[in-house]
Structures are given as C-alpha cells and as structure tokens.
Design a protein around this nucleic acid. Sequence first.
RNA 1: GGCCCCAUGGUCAAGUGGUUAAGACACCGCCCUUUCACGGCGGUAACGCGGGUUCGAAUCCCGCUGGGGUCACCA
Length: 495
Amino acid sequence: MDKQVRVRFAPSPTGALHIGGARTAYFNWLFARKNQGVFVLRIDDTDRARSTEESYRQILDSFQWLGIDWDEGPDCGGPYAPYRQSERTEIYRSHLQKLIAEDKVYPCFCSAEQLQADRDEAAREGRPPRYSGRCRNLSPEERARRLSVGDPHVYRLRTDGGGETVVHDLIRGDVVFQNSEIDDFIVWKADDSPTYHFASCVDDLAMQITHVIRAEEHLSNTPRHVALFEAFAAEPPVFAHVPMILAPDRSKLSKRHGATSVSEYRDMGILPEALVNYLLLLGFSPGDDREIVDRETAIELFSLDRVAKHAAVYDVKKLEWLNAHYFRAQSPDVVIDQIWKQIVHLGYVAPDEVDRHVLAWLRTVVEFVQTRSRGTADLIEGMRPYFEPVTTYDEKGVRKQFSDKATPERLRAVAQRLAGVAPFTAPVIESSFRALIDELGLKAGQLIHPVRLALTGVTVGPGLFDVIAMLGREETCERLATAANRIDAGTIAAQ
RNA sequence: GGCCCCAUGGUCAAGUGGUUAAGACACCGCCCUUUCACGGCGGUAACGCGGGUUCGAAUCCCGCUGGGGUCACCA
C-alpha cells in the first residue's frame, strides 16, 4: 500500500499571487484531490526583508477567491505545524546541528564581497562561477578559533563532486546532472537563518511531502535538493516540474505585461471559475476537445502525464471567452450581487434599496443586458442607458441613422403613437410600432435603428421593444422628443 | 559563458511510425436577426532547419537554430 499522497504549495509572501503560482497551486490541489491526498499550504518567508504580512493576506484571499482550499496551513494548522517558515527556525537549526555533527556542512568565512570578486574573476576567465572551496578544508583548530572569536560565517553543504544525480521527474522523465556541476552551496546564512533550499528540503522532509510539484525554474536546483535529502539520509520526494507561463513576448512574466496577478483579474471582473478553467488549459489538456472544465471535472481528468512540457504564452482573449461563458450562465440575482457596490457607487441604486419595483426592474435590465456581455464591465456599460439620461449619440450611428431629413418627424410620430399604448409591454409596443412602420411605408430597420439610437445613444443592445418597455412610456417619449429637437437644432453633430 | 529544459497555425493544444495533421481562442465570410452579442455553417493559418534510421517520419537518433530556466547569504 502506497503512502498517502501529500503535496504542498509554498509561496513566498513578497508580492501578489501570480497566475503562474496560481496554476502551480491548482495543479497541486488537483493532484491531491484526485489521489485522496493532502494539500498543504506553506509560507516560505525565510526572506525576512521582503516578506510582508499584506502579501500573506493577499495570497490567502486569492486562493479563497479561486476556490482552492488546503488541508493544512498557517491559518488552519495541522499535524506538522507551524506552516510558516519564519516560525520554524528551531527545526531548521536542529537539522543544521545534525549535519554539523556529521561534518556534512562546514562553516565558511568568506565575505560576500570576496565571493562576488571570485565570481567576477571566474566570469572574466570564462570559468563557471562556482565556489572556490576556500574554507572547505580549514583545520579543526582554525575553524574553532574563528568561530570562537565570532567571525561572521555561513554554512555550506559538503558535496562530493563525483558521479551524477538523476532527477526522476514525472513530467520530464529522468534528468541527469553531473555532480561536478554542483558546488558547496550555502545552506545557512550569516544572519543565522536558513536559505530557501535548506528550509524547503527540511520542511518537505518533516512534513512528509511525497510529491513536489513546482515550476520549471526549480528544475536546475533540484540536484542540490537531492543532495540535501541524501545528507539527511532520506529518500527525496517525487518531483514534477510544470512549465512556466510566459508573457505574450515570450519573456518572463512581470508587472509591465499588464495583469499578472490573481487579484488584478478579480478586479477586472474575471470570475474565479473562468480563471481556474483557463489556467488548467494552459499547460494541461484533457485529451479530448473539451474546453469548459470546472473544478470537479478537472479533478476527475487530472493527470501529471497530460501536463505539457513546454512553456505557454497566456492569451487574455481566451480567458475573456471563458469568462463570458461562465458569466452568462449565472442567474441575474448572482450578477446583481456582484455588481451591487459598483452600481451603488454610480448612483443607480440606493445602498439600502428595498423597493420591490425597483429591484424587479433592475433584475429585468440585468437579465437583458447580461446575455450580451462578457463580464461585469460590459454589463455595467450596457446598463447605462437605463439609468442615465442620453447626452451623446454614437458618432457613426448618427451619420447612418439620423441623416434622413425625415428623422425628427418620424421620431415624433413614434412618440405620439407610443403615448397611447397600453399596457406598455413589449408585444403590445411591437404591434403598435410595426403598424406605424407600415403606415409610414418604411422598412422595419429604417425606423427601428434611429429610434434605438435616440433612446439609448448607442447602436447596440437588447431588442428595441424590450428597450422601450424597460424605459417605460414616459421616458421613451421624452427621449424621442429630445433627440428630435436636438437634430433640428443641429446640436448633435457637434458632439 | 557552463549546465538543464523545451520546440505542431498569431495564441492554447490533440497527435507517441502509416491521419485529408483534431479541437478551442482570435481573425474573415455566410446564415439567423430590428442592432450587438449568442448560436449555426464555412474559410485563412502549423509540424523551426539540416542530416540520419525506416518501405514509411510531426512522431525515433544526431547536429544546428531559436526560446526559456539556472548557476545569489532571493524564493
């Protein structure tokens, strides 16, 4: 019987959660859920200078929003607590002591400046920038002496330099590294804290992590990690390095590439379902041609051997398409909840609105506009004509729909006809409207389009008779009159 | 620069020696229709290059080119 699967995602709280990190976390989560395993959230905040509490909160928020939950973590605890590296220093220290006792690590007194100079020289001479080994073979006496006088020092792992290390990667197969490529790297910093490599391996060991699923940027570091596990006489976990997500110019993702963090997409109105679906498809294929894959289906389908090997360039257009799909599938009530703060801010509704007529009408407007929106931004833009007076008219629309000299008189005719329509519902409006079209000897579009423009200021939107019904008789007639007057007065072209 | 990974349309991505080389987004056209969106139908568009292996290579091997990563007292 195999051990229980335990995976982890270990972000460092030095910024927002990136979509690359989110995808890696999602893959870990899917793998855990698929294999009845445990998903651990660990905070790698060994970099005290750059880690912030705000980033920590933001990362947790982003995961919650995405619908990715964890079984063990800093907020909910677990059998291997604590889950923040900054609170595990003593655990690292005891592991370091063990390695010191076994002479598997040694103190190095080289200064950062000295090491930099070494690297510069190596670069000039075209040699690989590896540690010289200057402090590797100090005599015990010398070591003890410098330690006792408090010389600043780090600790390095004593690597043997021979043979090769094979990383068994579930996505890439066996990757072979010559051990001569690996120098005596630092595991403990001069400020008396562990390096990332050290803390990460100690935690993966202590937390019984069985599979390390992480970004490809760590593949080159993996032989170091394997060396560390060997120093602890432990079996390394199974590795799987997922490809990176690249910006549209094929460079590494950074702020200058626009939205790269989960929170930015949330602020843009992207739904978590859409983002998670998109991230899944970026680097993973279900094998068939389905594109819409929700979390539950993804759990069923997920398998590391269907994860791509090559980096992917993200494409916001496809994300938006997915978002449109999920957005339209929502009930208007859910949508209203999502946009409530914004429409309150715009003054479309009172923050404490309770009038059922107002709410029912709002629901109707949302219902009609939602079906042709890709997200909340579109929706709110499309709702505008029903909440704000029309002050400008679409320029191209004006040229096309208001150019006929008869337009003002036709708009007035419509207003006059509609003034007598009751009940003021779409079907009744439509029959009356179409009768007028016949009387005027026009084609439907000849009257419908100018009226839409006069009523909403734009050339797109729900069916005209629904628009008229939503605006109501009084408002409709008023807007028609206003438009007619402004055409006559020539105050539209100026817009 | 050394080492490591990768390489199918603009983007995502099926494909594991024999296919007319899927599908999706985007783009274009047509249909539906009072507009837009949705939906339906159709179209443009790909195996980076060069050598092998093989009766036969997108698929296997080598080289090259290109992209990415890593070599920190960052993670």
